[in-house]
Nucleic acid binder design. Structure first.
Lengths: 219, 219
DNA sequence: ACCTGAACACCGTTCAAGT
DNA sequence: ACCTGAACACCGTTCAAGT
């Protein structure tokens, strides 16, 4: 018996309607990942093979569609964090979890752009997802504090803010490669480390040329 | 004799044209600060008392107008950093400078939203502004390293990324008050501190309710 | 019960016509 | 030399008409 999540789907609907909704979600996930939030609903509807009005029948507003996609990603992230906590034993988990989230957001433009946007404050289901990830991070912090990886006094919202900041760095400076991101994260690690515990900086300091490396043709 | 900065203004132009350009820049700064990048050019033109086409005569594209405003803000920030370096003596400067920039961006939506956007990679004058702030931060780091406030190996671009991240936190979680921002910055401070130097966290950890505190009516 | 193309309001940008 | 309202292409959203 599969765990049925509430996806806002009405109880009884025609098979084609359900199929359309699934296609829309899948296509939207792809298009939003590639193009970010400014992807047009027209393109999504077209690639899903339905009329624009059908899209709006399923998701009353463009923001609702975005929210539905982002909610899936957050659930996946939380699930992965839970798995790390179950199987991780006495290994460090909080920082690797942060790395996982930030690395993923680096290749999913819409995911990051939406974090902290309007929907995060107003949409009820988004608030619940928020609460779930806060709850997970609380346990990750406690786990890593017990092992001496994380400083005392650090809260889950503190950590969420650090993650948010690193995501901004990851997506807004797209010229920086993965190594530059790893270096940045190794720097941020010092913020969550207990006093006296030093983590060396990874790699070398990026230069201004690293910021401007990508030729226009590759945009 | 005033220091005349190149603002892209043609040598000889009619008095009304120069006035229009100035009004547009001033109004755009206000509107962009309040509404962010999605402010409409129509509103800016209207509040400046000119036709929309006049706006586009002065700034061929909306992005050009945004860039002009942001360039002014960056120049101001660099000037303030220089002043801090001249008058600061042996006081810590790098972290207070970061605090200044992030605090300002908190109330200037467009300023932050544009950092790291397209223009930062393509616009030549933006690249120059970038180089100027990198050069300043280089000297701030050297100054603070000499006094033991900042860890070895930290580069100016490292620092710019930390600032960018904190700006994202500041603007994307608008419910958080200034104290929450100060706490976050006190946390980030651990990332730039030399090993062994501990800065206590300011305030208490924010809760999920702090994130969702603002009622819809106040948006 | 659901789908759709056409229509609407809005936006960034351009242009023909004015002075 | 500069200004402007009207026009254009595009977008999110709605609606009347279909099956």
């Amino acid at each position: 018996m599969a765990l049925e999540q509430d996806t806002g789907t009405p109880r009884h609907q025609r098979a084609d309607a359900a199929r359309n909704r699934q296609r829309l979600l899948a296509v939207a996930a792809d298009v939003l990942r590639e193009r970010g939030l400014e992807a047009s609903v027209g393109e999504i509807a077209e690639r899903a093979g339905v009329g624009r009005a059908t899209l709006f029948r399923n998701f009353p507003t463009k923001q609702d569609l975005i929210t539905a996609v982002v909610l899936e990603r957050i659930r996946e992230g939380v699930a992965e964090g839970e798995a790390m906590l179950e199987t991780g034993g006495d290994q460090e988990i909080l920082f690797p979890f942060m790395k996982l989230l930030v690395g993923r957001q680096r290749v999913d433009r819409a995911l990051f752009e939406s974090v902290g946007g309007e929907a995060f404050l107003t949409d009820e289901r988004m608030r619940q997802a928020h609460a779930a990830i806060i709850d997970l991070i609380d346990r990750l912090i406690a786990h890593d504090q017990r092992l001496g990886y994380v400083r005392e006094g650090l809260g889950a919202v503190d950590m969420l803010m650090l993650i948010k900041g690193a995501c901004a760095v990851a997506t807004s400076m797209p010229d920086l490669g993965p190594q530059a991101l790893d270096r940045h994260l190794s720097l941020v690690r010092g913020a969550i480390a207990p006093p006296g515990r030093d983590y060396p900086l990874e790699g070398t300091a990026p230069t201004i040329d690293d910021l401007h490396a990508r030729p226009v043709s590759e945009r």
